[in-house]
């Protein structure tokens, strides 16, 4: 029962302030036709109900899946198997991320269909999957996160020099968008599952860094897309 109460609170916090600001705008500067405004109110209702169901669903499905995966992954002796699992998981989870769906839609619309929605989705998922795998393997080999991040970001800005400027903005947006309400809890749960097996000492430090490093992959994928388009 507590989970539902917490979820309700979370969703109200997330949606209500913005909805109220919009209502305020409506009566001061916006003055939308009544029909449009009613559509908006119905939309708020759907978004509210949908977000609650979504979070409850993620709690009951993706979190236990993530933990179970984390626990079995780390027991694996074969690194290539772990990498394979990591990539497939990263790829499939990020494809479903709601924020990414919206971003890809907006980009397709703004570019007049020149950057198709599914191309962007699949590219970002490939990039994110690869870097999620990298962040898993990093832990196995104990490579410093700082060094990987330094090299990655230098690489990102170098790639950006050769990429179309439109793709530069979209790329860094994609990095932020892929780490949304579906990916973040999943990755965190995976980290929890892994550290539960590896013992508390290795755990705390290693359960962070996945999200940040995975985001780099999304950015890189879109930049590469921008180089191909050139």
């Amino acid at each position: 029962m507590n989970i539902i109460k917490d979820t309700l609170k979370e969703v109200i916090y997330a949606i209500l302030p913005i909805a109220l600001v919009i209502v305020f705008f409506q009566f001061t500067i916006l003055h939308l036709p009544t029909k449009d405004f009613l559509n908006f109110l119905v939309g708020v209702f759907f978004a509210f109900v949908g977000f609650v169901l979504f979070l409850v669903g993620v709690n009951a499905s993706l979190l236990p899946i993530g933990e179970a995966f984390g626990a079995t992954l780390i027991q694996d002796e074969k690194v290539w198997l772990l990498m394979g699992f990591g990539f497939t998981l990263g790829f499939t989870v990020v494809i479903a991320e709601p924020g990414l769906q919206i971003l890809a839609g907006q980009v397709a619309k703004s570019s007049g269909g020149e950057i198709p929605k599914y191309l962007l989705l699949v590219m970002v998922a490939l990039g994110m999957g690869s870097f999620f795998t990298l962040s898993l393997t990093r832990i196995i080999f104990g490579v410093s996160l700082l060094k990987i991040l330094l090299v990655s970001y230098i690489l990102l800005f170098t790639l950006a020099l050769f990429s179309l400027p439109e793709f530069f903005t979209v790329a860094f947006d994609a990095g932020g968008v892929t780490t949304g309400p579906l990916v973040v809890p999943f990755i965190l749960a995976l980290g929890v599952g892994m550290s539960a097996i590896r013992g508390p000492k290795a755990g705390t430090e290693d359960s962070f860094g996945f999200v940040g490093l995975s985001a780099v992959g999304s950015i890189m994928a879109v930049l590469i897309l921008g180089i191909i388009y050139r």
Binding site: G43, V49, G50, V52, L53, V56, G57, S61, P64
Partner: peptide
Amino acid sequence: VIIRGIVLTFVGLVLFLLGIKVGFIRVGEL
């Protein structure tokens, strides 16, 4: 339980994005 959770995630995601698209995004653009 997990399968049920996935179904719930699906329904929730559809409703959430419906509300966001028809409600928030349209008004945001306006």
